[in-house]
């Protein structure tokens, strides 16, 4: 086992561990902060897999903005010292769905990339991602940006509808 693999395992364990803590901790704010640790550890995994671009974007967008947004939303809601998550009937459905999604994703990744090595060359640099995005994957990219634009307009419409009434 090389040093890289050991570090990767550490990051992976950190990611899984803090993800578990994020779900089990009693305080919502702590969950959000554990989520930061998870996302950071995942970013570390990305770096070790030479996907630097994804790693820094992960930190910039998810740690820097999405978690802040989550915390902001939490702060706007009513704070109780210990909020125990409400157990609804959907809990088990959610668990099954989550498990199915995890197994499905895992199976896809393993079957897709089984046995591939990324030694020697860097596949995750900005240049290679940019090349791939704007040659092979232009159509999905454009469709995605259309979806995001629609979401943006939708958000504006929803937030404005209150003021016009």
């Amino acid at each position: 086992m090389s040093a890289t693999e050991i570090v990767f395992l550490l990051f992976a364990a950190l990611a899984v561990g803090s993800a578990l803590l994020a779900m089990t901790t009693k305080q919502l704010v702590h969950s959000a902060l554990w989520l930061v640790a998870t996302l950071g550890a995942v970013a570390g995994c990305f770096v070790l897999m030479t996907a630097e671009f994804v790693a820094w974007v992960q930190v910039l967008v998810y740690v820097g903005s999405v978690v802040v947004l989550v915390i902001f939303a939490l702060m706007l809601t009513r704070q109780q010292s210990t909020i125990s998550a409400e157990v609804t009937g959907n809990r088990w459905t959610a668990a099954v769905l989550g498990l199915v999604a995890a197994v499905g994703l895992g199976a896809t990744v393993i079957s897709g990339f089984h046995g591939e090595r990324i030694e020697g060359h860097r596949i995750g640099s900005a240049k290679s991602i940019g090349d791939a995005l704007f040659s092979d994957w232009v159509l999905p990219f454009e469709i995605l940006s259309g979806v995001l634009l629609a979401a943006l307009i939708g958000a504006i419409v929803i937030s404005r509808s209150g003021t016009e009434r």
């Binding site: 910039l60 802040v68 900005a126």
Partner: peptide
């Protein structure tokens, strides 16, 4: 010298603010 130095520094700066946010919380 990082291939993605710009993103690295911007990402680090945005994480730094998280500390102030934690202090507030």
């Amino acid at each position: 010298d990082l291939d993605l130095g710009l993103f690295f520094v911007l990402a680090a700066m945005s994480v730094g603010v998280l500390g102030t946010l934690m202090g507030g919380l």
